[in-house]
């Protein structure tokens, strides 16, 4: 009985400490830098899971430490065997099994299914008629971004490097393909790339021979210069040039975006 009380107190203290730690970590922004509504969904999911799991983690960790200290064999104890020999404890096992099933079902309903539902919704065609479309082409080892709605065939900065500009508070539809626009058709030349902007909270692999889509809603004016997580990064290994396959991203206001479009068009006509 004494052990149960002592352990329960230690467990509660442990849970509170862990809750505080996870909360602090979340406030501090330990999860990715978030600049889209999808990324915020992910952040919430992590916070939810950790909040619920804190007592579970505390239970196991406190249990390990408590057992280790409290039930150690003392030096000089001649009797090797424990006095307490039991094979089962229906209550403990029952609670354990029911809680683990319950928690997993909960996590499946929320955040897994609920957040995924959000994502499916954001991909519905009727909600994406006003989207900004960006054609993304991945070749080994380079990104190309073109804006068909604005006639920009390959967005570049002054040095000729690919760059991605997006207006803030706008749905963006990325059309993802893997091929080499500088090469004649060759069925062996396309490999799998991964399109990832860490600050946007999701990624999509680009499969050669297929066209894939990724939708985000930008929520913050930011750029690569503000936080290096605002970058396009290839995440599926695609050969030696894989680490170099990155491009800066700029999320700007609608006005600044228009200015940038004009500049690009001028650059293109030169």
């Amino acid at each position: 009985m004494l052990d149960l009380v002592l352990f329960t107190i230690a467990w509660i203290v442990g849970s509170v400490l862990l809750e505080w730690l996870f909360h602090a970590l979340n406030q501090y922004g330990t999860y990715f830098y978030t600049a889209s509504s999808q990324a915020v969904d992910g952040e919430h999911a992590v916070a939810f899971i950790l909040t619920i799991l804190a007592p579970v983690i505390a239970f196991v960790v406190v249990m390990l430490i408590y057992n280790f200290i409290r039930f150690r064999a003392r030096a000089g104890d001649t009797n090797l065997r424990s006095r307490h020999q039991f094979r089962t404890n229906k209550l403990f096992i029952g609670v354990w099994v029911l809680v683990s099933i319950g928690l997993n079902l909960l996590f499946f309903v929320h955040p897994s299914a609920s957040a995924l539902e959000q994502m499916f919704n954001s991909e519905q065609a009727r909600l994406n008629r006003q989207d900004l479309e960006v054609d993304v082409v991945a070749r080994q080892w380079q990104w190309f971004f073109s804006y068909p709605q604005y006639g920009i065939s390959s967005a570049q900065d002054a040095n000729g490097n690919a760059t991605l500009y997006l207006p803030v508070n706008r749905n963006v539809k990325f059309v993802l393909r893997s091929y080499d626009p500088w090469h004649t058709y060759d069925p062996y030349i396309g490999v799998i790339h991964g399109f990832w902007i860490p600050a946007f909270g999701l990624k999509q692999d680009i499969i050669p021979g297929e066209t894939r889509y990724m939708y985000v809603h930008t929520s913050k004016v930011t750029s690569y210069d503000v936080n290096p997580m605002v970058r396009v990064q290839c995440t599926e290994v695609c050969g030696p040039g894989h680490p170099y396959m990155e491009a800066p991203v700029h999320v700007v206001s609608a006005g600044d975006f228009q200015t940038w479009v004009k500049k690009q068009l001028k650059l293109q006509s030169d």
């Binding site: 990715f32 990324a39 992910g42 999911a45 899971i49 799991l53 909270g201």
Partner: peptide, 18 residues
């Protein structure tokens, strides 16, 4: 615990390949 987090698609899509 990290596995349960990664089982969640929204987190997985972000943390995958990192």
């Amino acid at each position: 615990v990290t596995g349960v987090m990664l089982a969640d698609p929204v987190i997985n899509l972000q943390a995958h390949d990192t």
